[in-house]
Design a protein around this nucleic acid. Sequence first.
DNA 1: TACACTTACTTTGCATTTCAAAGTACTTTA
DNA 2: TAAAGTACTTTGAAATGCAAAGTAAGTGTA
Lengths: 99, 99
Amino acid sequence: MKNIIQHINKAFDHRVRLGIMSILMVNEYADFNMLKELLGATDGNIASHTKALEKEEYIKVEKSFINRKPNTRYIATAEGREAFSKHIEALEKLINPND
Amino acid sequence: MKNIIQHINKAFDHRVRLGIMSILMVNEYADFNMLKELLGATDGNIASHTKALEKEEYIKVEKSFINRKPNTRYIATAEGREAFSKHIEALEKLINPND
DNA sequence: TACACTTACTTTGCATTTCAAAGTACTTTA
DNA sequence: TAAAGTACTTTGAAATGCAAAGTAAGTGTA
């Protein structure tokens, strides 16, 4: 048994990014303020973590105007969904090694 | 539903620390090289992450000599075990919000 | 009994990441 | 039309992460 954490994804090592991904797994999309409120994070925080996930192509961003206000929607990509599922599997294996 | 990640422990946000704790949950103790090998991390890496967990009093350190060689054992404290269990619970809730 | 080598960590300092405060651009309200 | 609000984005200091280098004690080799 070697390197038991090799399948744990570095991109999901932070609780805000973990939160963003799990929100986007159950919701088709989420906007900036939804993430902000659900995660209790600051604006800059949400911006930088979503940017990091976008860079990995785990989420994509759709900008539009709703009621004449700017609105930014985040959506998990297929790649992101798969990576997150694998991450969860790795976590489960780490926590319950005998399953 | 607000702040869904509030029970996720910042101290366990990193995969090496997650690994250290899960090793110490199933093993009574682990020494430096055991952690290093199981986690595939460098020396300095193990040192700094164990130090961080020690600072939180989630693990304790026992130094001795075995076969005339220095040996450092890491042991999860009661506090550490409880904190980690709560962290896992929070993770599970995050991933499967409907359970 | 010197000398190089190994083992088991620890220290160091650079690089990356995180954070919230401040900034921007636009809209609404008085 | 001025002030306030909304929805982000940018910024730069602070915290964190990393591996290379350092240390200290023991081991082999001649």
